[in-house]
Design a protein around this nucleic acid. Structure first.
Length: 870
RNA sequence: GGUUGUAUAGUUCAUUGGUAGAACGCUAAAUUUAAGAUUUAGAAGUAGCAGGUUCGAUUCUUGUUAUAACCA
């Protein structure tokens, strides 16, 4: 027997070696337009933001993608597997502000560092296709697309409310407003109207909703989240006439249009609420200081739904009244309320307190009377009354004139028909989705390529003058938009009239950059944004992989963009991602010291008394297992792991423990155990490589042990293949563990007939099957076995059908469903014979003694069940 | 509060309408100058709880509890 201690896998040497070999042979390169006869497979992981360091989430994401890419390549697909950088965004600008380094330099240095780490992990990427969105070669092409979409009317400029940070002189996203203050400056945020650019995504609301139904290989929950975000609701628009409208009210504001999803509850109306930005509110504010104050207060609140949801519901009475559409003799007060949004629906709602929590809160607070109009089925209409808890469920209409006795659905229909007959309302579809505002008052983004001319208005930059390149000599010490502050950049001549004009100084939301990069990857060096032949051959992406945190915005914008590009014939498909996989997070234990401060895992060590600090010996408490994050200090740097254990260990461990869609916990023990296992696998294969000559033949007759091993090997081929097809990398790994154990065990029968062949076959298959997971070691093992072809170039193995069937089966024998014994028989043995054997089994016979068999259940190759007695 | 998912060995997960498995960890022994070492042997389970369907349920189904994500 061999001396096992002499085989040790040296990843420091072999990993870079194989990476160079693959690179040299250009194994992962594919043409922009693949051979029509070869099946294509486009696997893409969400491209990273170049923060400077790879984190474990990246490792998990890109390892998953790489396993798919390598597996599909082995299955004979032409595989497009590119990598790039989502390189625009605020952190670069912050670095510029705080450290005086230029955003471009900071970004490119980060990219270089992260690229080196990705390469070190041995991902099978087509690096020739790499780009960063901050390069003019990319964003210049994006500017062309923006202009083409603008020409098609899919982009427009309009005034809209924004959160304005007066100190930083900048617009903030809703998420950046915390308790009414700017997240960086802490200044009180104002609402302000600004001209902004919008993608008209709402035009695509219905197609985006319908398209979800075609995405069979998307996680259900992502589709549900998108559906809710789109928020289709059917309802009615109802026009309320003002009672005694003031004389100075122009025609347009002598009535109020309301959107409602519940026209059935019109008779339960108690008040009409309008947004602080409603024209009537604005009109009243001019000579009513109380109303003006209230509006100002609303403007300080922020614009997000979340803020509005959490804020106390408040209102102010305008003193005006509207006339009820169905009851001309009744009038209801108009209130200005902080929970009504101008850009949802019509900016006005009617309140029905008996059927809505928010409305009843409001009515009770301001002492507005109301009546009950819906009661649960089976209640007595004379008795049922809502006082402080609204009835929001299904039911029957009461106290509602011509709607009485109808169900909610019937009443909605009837009410709308009546409104339409009267000419004061109609059925409409309303969406929660709003147009996508892409203007950002920032430097580090793609400049929106238009010029503002005092005579010609908004003039697109002609395509031959693109790209509009960001200036490099920028002063970040000033507040506000650096592009706007730049002394010369914005001053240009109008392309039309050649008079003095100014560039648009807004840049694009970075979500624009990530909304078409997948199309650019198919022909990244093209002089046109998208090479039509390449994009139509490679797209849609067959497998997209990324985190659940992008379930809504990125994926929705990318879907919209693809549809928009489809309408201008830039791409030939409507949906960009055929299959989506959302991986879980990488978690780690968190640690705190006595003072309650977070402590990093590498500052501590384990002792018999628990964790203590390395240097001081201070006791550490172990906290929850949480998502790795810098603030909790529970991160593990991939680079450290790679250095200690190698890329293969990192790859194997991050896939081994959990199903990929679930959160996984990174543990030191797990990494160590993985490393140990891989060493063992290598050793097992090494021993075979040494013991068995490469040209060993398959003998006519095999010993039982050799036959068993061969069957195990071929069953494993099937199960690993199925697991990889089903994205169950953890299952594939479990099966490979089992085969490794079987091969190691077979060493004991190494001298039996056919074992040489069976062991060598098992070792080779083990190497090929683990190839997608641990590509470096797989290459090494195959070379040890004397095979010159690289694993990366070898076709995926197929199992021999004849070895998949069992040679004998163990049948369970039950009496009344309780296991009483087992028998071993040849597969597909005659039913009668099996039952006879079962009946004769020692324990079974004992239990059957003196009993009458009422019924015998026989499942071939599995079970016999005797039902006895009465 | 709603939606969706999950619940199986100490841990992480497989599996199946018909004997519940793997890996790690754990225990013991052996080997080694040494080990994040190796080998051998072993323990570990009422499949969350309560019903229903069935000859038979961990699997299908209803309810419930716990937990997670998302929405509100």
């Amino acid at each position: 027997m061999s001396d096992s201690s002499s085989f040790s896998y040296n990843f420091q040497h072999t990993e870079p070696f194989w990476q160079q070999e693959w690179e040299k042979r250009r194994l992962f390169d594919v043409p922009n337009v693949p051979d029509v006869n070869a099946p294509k497979y486009y696997v893409l992981e969400m491209f990273p933001y170049p923060s400077g360091q790879l984190h474990m989430g990246h490792v998990r994401n890109y390892t998953l993608g790489d396993v798919v890419a390598r597996y599909k390549r082995a299955r004979g697909y032409s595989v497009l597997h590119p990598m790039g950088w989502d390189a625009f965004g605020l952190p670069a600008e912050n670095a510029a502000k705080s450290r005086g380094v230029s955003p471009a330099k900071w970004t490119m240095e980060n990219i270089a560092a992260m690229r080196a780490e990705l390469k070190r992990l041995g991902f099978s990427l087509n690096w020739d296709r790499e780009f960063a969105t901050c390069q003019p070669e990319y964003y210049g092409q994006q500017q062309k697309l923006i202009l083409r979409l603008m020409k098609e009317g899919l982009l427009e400029r309009r005034e809209s409310w924004v959160n304005w940070d007066p100190e930083d002189q900048t617009v903030l996203a809703n998420e950046q407003v915390i308790d009414g203050r700017g997240w960086r400056s802490g200044a009180l945020i104002e609402k302000k109207q600004l001209f902004q650019w919008f993608f008209k995504i709402t035009k695509f609301a219905q197609p985006l909703l319908d398209g979800l139904k075609t995405l069979d290989n998307w996680p259900e929950r992502v589709k549900t989240m998108q559906e809710r975000w789109l928020g289709r609701s059917e309802g009615a628009k109802v026009k309320f006439a003002l009672d005694n409208a003031p004389a100075d009210f122009e025609e347009a504001i002598q009535s109020v249009e309301v959107f409602t999803t519940r026209p059935d509850t019109l008779f339960g109306m108690a008040f009409l609420a309008i947004s602080a930005d409603h024209p009537i509110a604005a009109k009243l504010a001019t000579n009513n200081p109380k109303i003006a104050d209230f509006i100002a207060e609303c403007h300080r609140m922020g614009t997000s739904e979340e803020v509005i949801e959490k804020a106390e519901k408040k209102g102010v009475d305008t003193g005006l009244y509207v006339i009820h559409p169905f009851m001309p003799d009744q009038k209801f007060p108009i209130w200005i309320a902080n929970f009504v949004l101008m850009d949802y629906g019509t900016g006005a709602v009617f309140g029905c307190p008996s059927g809505d929590q928010r409305d009843i809160d409001f009515a009770l607070k301001y002492n507005l009377s109301f009546k009950t109009v819906v009661m649960p089925q089976g209640e007595d209409p004379a008795q049922f009354v809502v006082t402080d808890k609204p009835h929001t469920g299904d039911g029957i209409l009461i106290n509602s004139d011509f709607l009485n006795g109808l169900t909610i659905a019937q009443a909605k229909k009837t009410a709308i028909t009546r409104l339409e007959e009267m000419g004061i309302g109609e059925k409409i579809v309303n969406w929660r989705l709003r147009d996508w505002g892409l203007s950002r008052q920032r430097y580090w983004g793609c400049p929106i390529p238009v010029i503002h001319c005092p005579t010609c208005g908004v003039v697109p930059v002609p395509e031959d003058q693109l790209p509009v390149v960001l200036p490099e000599d920028v002063d970040f010490s000033l507040s506000g938009n650096p592009l706007d502050n730049h002394p010369t950049w914005k001053h240009v001549n109008c392309p039309k009239c050649h008079g003095k004009a100014q560039r648009e100084t807004d840049t694009c939301d970075t979500f624009v950059d990530s909304s078409w990069y997948f199309a650019r990857f198919t022909a990244p060096h093209s002089n046109d944004p998208i090479d039509h032949e390449a994009v139509n051959r490679w797209m849609p992406v067959d497998q997209y992989i990324g985190g659940i945190e992008h379930a809504i915005l990125h994926l929705l914008y990318a879907r919209f963009f693809t549809r928009a590009l489809n309408t201008i014939d830039e791409v030939g498909m409507e949906e960009p991602f055929k299959a989506l996989f959302t991986q879980g997070m990488v978690m780690h234990e968190s640690y705190k010291d006595a003072a309650g401060e977070w402590v990093s895992p590498d500052e501590i060590k384990k002792t018999d008394a628990g964790f203590v600090k390395h240097d001081t010996g201070e006791a550490i408490t172990v906290g929850r297992v949480e998502k790795m994050s810098k603030s909790k200090k529970n991160t593990i740097a991939p680079s450290v792991i790679i250095e200690r254990f190698g890329a293969d260990t990192a790859r194997w461990f991050i896939l081994s423990d959990n199903p990929p869609e679930r959160d996984m916990e990174w543990t030191e023990e797990g990494a160590v155990a993985t490393s140990r296992f891989l060493q063992r696998l290598y050793r097992v294969v090494s021993i075979i490589a040494q013991d068995v000559p490469a040209d060993v033949a398959l003998p006519e007759q095999l010993a039982q042990s050799a036959d068993d091993l061969r069957r195990m090997t071929h069953r494993t081929i099937v199960s690993v293949t199925e697991a990889l097809d089903g994205f169950a990398m953890n299952v594939a790994i479990a099966r490979l563990h089992e085969l490794t154990n079987a091969v190691a065990d077979a060493e004991k029968q190494a001298k039996e007939v056919g074992m040489d062949f069976a062991r060598r076959e098992a070792a080779y298959m083990l190497s090929l099957l683990s190839g997608p997971l641990v590509p470096h070691m797989a290459e090494d093992m195959v070379r040890l076995l004397g095979v010159s072809e690289l694993v990366a170039q070898t076709a995926w193995p197929t199992a021999e059908e004849s070895l998949l069937a069992a040679t004998r089966v163990v049948i369970a024998v039950q009496i009344k469903g309780k296991l009483r014994g087992t028998i071993e028989v040849a597969p597909d043995m005659d039913k009668g014979a099996v039952i006879e054997l079962a009946r004769a089994e020692k324990t079974v016979a004992k239990f059957l003694d003196g009993q009458t068999i009422v019924k015998t259940i026989y499942v071939p190759n599995k079970i016999v069940n005797f039902v006895v007695g009465g």
